[in-house]
Design a binder for these strands. Sequence first.
DNA 1: CGCAAGTTTGACGCTGCTCAATCACTGTGG
DNA 2: CCACAGTGATTGAGCAGCGTCAAACTTGCG
Lengths: 266, 266
Amino acid sequence: MLVFRSPVRNVMLADAPLQRRNPLIERLSMFVTLGPDERAAVEAMTQTRRAIESGETLAHEGSRPDRVCLILDGVAYRHRYTSDGRRQIFGYLLPGDLCDTKFVICNECDHNVGMLCDSQIAIIPVTTLMKTMVQFPVIERGLLMMSLVEAATAREWLLNVGQRNAFQRLGHFFCELSKRFEAFGNQGFGKGIAMPLTQRELADTMGLNVVHVNRVLQRFRNEGLLNWSRQHFRILDFGRLAELSGFDPHYLRLDRGLPERRMLAY
Amino acid sequence: MLVFRSPVRNVMLADAPLQRRNPLIERLSMFVTLGPDERAAVEAMTQTRRAIESGETLAHEGSRPDRVCLILDGVAYRHRYTSDGRRQIFGYLLPGDLCDTKFVICNECDHNVGMLCDSQIAIIPVTTLMKTMVQFPVIERGLLMMSLVEAATAREWLLNVGQRNAFQRLGHFFCELSKRFEAFGNQGFGKGIAMPLTQRELADTMGLNVVHVNRVLQRFRNEGLLNWSRQHFRILDFGRLAELSGFDPHYLRLDRGLPERRMLAY
DNA sequence: CGCAAGTTTGACGCTGCTCAATCACTGTGG
DNA sequence: CCACAGTGATTGAGCAGCGTCAAACTTGCG
């Protein structure tokens, strides 16, 4: 079995040094067209970088952060615990995602953001972010779009957990992840995607139990739909998996992204 | 059995004519402090009013609206159907709620908004909304806060559906509704709350089945926690219900609202 | 090598779903 | 005034999807 690191990191390192690519610029370019000034502004805003270890917490429920973090490389996850100790995962942050524009306005974080692997982040002071948004409305619009996609994804997850069975839930989730990675131009896509999740995380994402997740994953394997192993997955028959699980990528709004990205690639 | 109409309509009609109260002003005042000019602007923005019947659709999935609707009186609900015909309800819009600021930016509606009873709405052209937000940043901030609370509520629902059993889900939902109504100063609160829902809607909200919802409602009744009958409910023991269902109202951000509202009450 | 974390398996049972019938209430038309 | 239909609530029987518990196994790592 092929072993590789975070696919995103892979791309970054293989194609160009981390310093040369800015995932936030790429992400914003999926929704808006950035001019040279705007790119420079995003670049400037994301200069303060920092390594962060797996398991560390980027944002604590109840805290009042004065900065926003950008995932440059790695994966984070939003989550919260119930009073009786059950965990629900609300979403995963991939490179280019921000954590969290909203706390700035709300003044208070209402859930936790933890790291799933050793990662690189950029730290953006709130004041800098604000100034940049005021000066470049296009950037503001792009950030707004990003948060709207996140909200749409949250609705999709609610529908997923509320209305679909375990098989469909997991299928839908993997389709979504796969599309998101694809949109970043992940080179390793054909061979599989690395995602630092355990079956525990999958369970807490889908409102299921670890044992049952395990059994559904086996069914995926037996039916030739998907292989999950050692935090790597590979969808073998995307069309069928999408159909069986009712997946429609529209809510991710990746459609506009593709031509844009092609333009960015020179 | 006491019979009354929509409690909100009730309050409106009993306390002051609809024209005298603007639910959007009240709602914004929960998050920001509006000056006389800003109130006037909100007032001006919401002049175009219209009656709308139960069952009508305010927004269609896939449509590209050029206006935003404000619920003045009545209840709407956001929902979407899966490809196999199951419905998930994403949220309920009460007087003061907007449907939908986000579509403006996204340019496309990703779910439906339907009316649960005969209602009154105000129609705000997007251009007017934009101008008002630019001219009065406080209003923009208030609207942003409103959409953040909605996003936080969506997360709470995901946790609810993903991690809690049927009893807790329903209990949590009723606690939330009750708190939201309470925040509007609903006079009939002590006697019960009218909410134009069938058990079918409750089921599609909670990711449950109608039959099971019915049985849980009976259990609430038998345990002296809550009465639900003919689209009216009355929580008999809020404290216990909240505890049993793990409800913590923090995510609704009503805390700031209370002193504000008191000031508004003269 | 030995430990810790994660995965896999089996047995068992409960929560919640399906199907189907009945009841209660409301509005309609004759 | 009553018959009737439609909608929603309620009930029962039966069962399956998924959860719980517990143990074994596998993998990675110091």
